[in-house]
């Protein structure tokens, strides 16, 4: 069953698909606003959104550290938790790529779990691509008077092909001007545990990124992965830049009215 068929079928069954939000641990812990923005965008697009309570983490830190046994345990937990939804949607390319491409690979020697992993993978989507490609949704227009530049996070871009989706959606935001930075598709140096294991290399990479962001003259940086955004926001702040950093979902949902990532509350 292809995704489109699944979508059509669920549309036939009920006009509103039952969507589980995969919050991602970083959004859960660091910036719940992105989670609520995702919920709003999904509900506006006609989804019934649920947040399974037993979800925690996709297992990426263990996966990328080479601890495949732990990752398999986590993956089984995730597969169980999200088994019964029409779709699983998360506001992160890298977490959803772990579910979509990592899980099936992890169970290549286990037919039963492989089948379950593939089934979950087929129903799992990164938020921007789900809105534009699966739901073909046009979110209610919001307004954001800013000049923004968009960073393509690597996993979303290369594992899931997310490039135009956020830009298309953001193009509808009133008074938001999008300018492209040089090397928008080059890694910001976050890389999960990489950024603390190799801080000097990571800081060099994010310094290059900050220079490219700065060179656009944009006053806002947008992206689709909180890990990268924390990294870039942290470096921009350290460099004394006033660039405001938001997840694209926050802007699309009209929920970028509070402090940006790394910004003090006074600003409100």
């Amino acid at each position: 069953m292809t995704i489109n068929e699944a979508h059509q079928r669920s549309e036939q069954a009920t006009s509103s698909p039952r969507v589980a939000l995969f919050v991602t641990c970083l959004v859960d812990l660091m910036r719940p606003n992105i989670g609520f923005a995702a919920v709003k965008l999904l509900e506006d697009a006609g989804c019934r959104v649920e947040v399974p309570r037993s979800q925690v983490c996709c297992g990426q830190p263990a996966y990328n550290s080479g601890d495949f046994a732990s990752t398999q345990r986590i993956a089984k937990h995730v597969i169980d938790t999200f088994a019964d939804y029409d779709y699983v949607v998360g506001p992160s390319g890298s977490c959803m790529a772990t579910i979509k491409t990592g899980y099936p690979a992890l169970f290549e020697d286990d037919a039963v779990w492989h089948a379950r992993a593939v089934k979950l993978a087929q129903r799992s989507h990164e938020l921007m691509s789900f809105l534009r490609d699966v739901l073909k949704a046009t979110p209610p227009q919001t307004r954001m008077a800013a000049t923004a530049t968009y960073h393509d996070s690597c996993s979303g871009l290369r594992s899931l092909g997310i490039k135009d989706q956020p830009r298309d959606l953001l193009a509808r935001v009133r008074d938001l001007k999008l300018v492209e930075m040089q090397d928008s598709d080059v890694c910001c140096g976050f890389g999960g545990t990489f950024c603390v294991k190799y801080p000097d290399i990571s800081v060099k990479m994010v310094t290059d990124k900050a220079a490219n962001i700065d060179a656009t003259g944009a006053d806002m940086l947008l992206g689709g992965d909180l890990g990268c955004l924390l990294n870039m926001a942290g470096r921009l702040r350290r460099l004394g830049k006033s660039t405001r950093v938001f997840h694209a979902a926050e802007v699309l949902a009209g929920m970028a009215d509070g402090p940006a990532i790394g910004e003090a509350e006074e600003r409100r």
Binding site: V23, V27, G35, R53, V196, V203, V206, L230, R235
Partner: peptide, 23 residues
């Protein structure tokens, strides 16, 4: 978190987690 904060600030979390707020 010196590996992180050596070259960049660590943005503060918003406070309560999403799961708490959602509940």
């Amino acid at each position: 978190a010196s590996g992180w904060t050596k070259g960049r600030d660590m943005p503060a979390p918003q406070g309560p987690t999403f799961q708490e707020l959602w509940a």
